[in-house]
């Protein structure tokens, strides 16, 4: 659906079902240089099981207009403003990668609004090396190619896909290329500069599930485990052999884990 926020047209995927607002939502937050299409195999799945799904494209991403935001704190504030404008009182946030940072920051700063967290392939800090930062500014296509490659695990590199006929790498490249050309650069800078994750984690008492990838080259597993251990009310699931793009690579297991968590 389209929604106006701060005079900008925002695209929000609702999983093919009208958003039935009863004051609560399951909000799916995409990662750096991604958009709502990260959640192709989650948004429809949960929407058709009765969850009020919102998978927004952050400004400058996917089908949303506007300029990409430049800090995790700004993204968290924007998210709360979006919930306000949609009259969503409380939300379960599910973040992927950078989306985990946004979810953690929002949950710590707006505890009354966020009921629980799903953190997929995340960490409390996501430093980005200078080479990739420079590449995202000066050689965007190369940066997209490198991130798509690093972001996928061994089976994805072999193009072994649960969606018949689909190529993880081909799709991943095109998805990232469809964003505003500043999107990846701003996202990576925002991740690199965000240092409040550890402090935010200490303030989070809501239930959390961490779903981590055993072959994650973007946010290595040890950082995901450290994240889970820093959250007092958390559980963790590790999917061996999976790469960073867990929602696409292992959708059945991710959906099963999330659904079980949401049912508790």
């Amino acid at each position: 659906m389209k929604h106006q926020l701060f005079d900008t047209s925002i695209h929000i995927a609702t999983g093919g079902r009208p958003f039935a607002n009863d004051g609560q939502a399951l909000v799916l937050l995409h990662g750096s240089g991604q958009n709502h299409l990260t959640w192709v195999l989650q948004s429809r799945y949960f929407a058709y099981r009765g969850f009020p799904v919102l998978a927004p494209d952050f400004p400058g991403h996917g089908l949303s207009g506007g300029t990409p935001l430049d800090s995790i704190e700004a993204m968290a504030a924007w998210l709360i403003a979006l919930l306000d404008s949609l009259e969503v009182k409380t939300a379960c946030l599910v973040g992927h990668s950078q989306g985990c940072l946004v979810a953690i920051d929002a949950a710590a700063r707006y505890p009354s609004r966020i009921t629980r967290l799903g953190l997929i392939a995340g960490a409390l800090a996501i430093p980005v090396n200078d080479q990739l930062l420079t590449m995202s500014d000066k050689a965007l296509a190369k940066a997209i190619s490198v991130m798509t490659s690093w972001g996928h695990g061994p089976m994805a590199h072999m193009h072994d896909n649960t969606q018949p006929g689909h190529s993880f790498l081909g799709y991943g490249n095109r998805l990232m290329a469809s964003n505003n050309e500043m999107a990846l650069r701003n996202d990576l800078m925002a991740c690199n500069q965000y240092s409040a994750g550890q402090d935010a984690a200490t303030k989070i008492t809501q239930p959390v599930i961490c779903i981590l990838a055993g072959a994650d080259r973007m946010t290595p597993l040890k950082h995901g485990i450290a994240m889970a251990n820093s959250l007092v009310n958390s559980q963790k699931i590790i999917l061996a052999g999976a790469g960073h793009m867990l929602p696409a690579e292992r959708p059945a297991e991710v959906n099963h884990a999330l659904r079980g968590f949401l049912a508790t």
């Binding site: 093919g16 195999l41 429809r44 799945y45 058709y48 193009h159 072994d160 896909n161 649960t162 969606q163 018949p164 006929g165 689909h166 190529s167 790498l169 081909g170 959708p251 059945a252 959906n255």
Partner: peptide, 26 residues
């Protein structure tokens, strides 16, 4: 409903055919 990947009837998709499709896409 295309909520998940997978096969439901070989007129639509098939695991052996999917390998061929994924190979040519790659």
């Amino acid at each position: 409903n295309q909520e998940l990947g997978g096969h439901l009837y070989t007129r639509i998709s098939n695991p052996t055919v999917a390998v061929l499709e994924q190979r040519i896409a790659a």
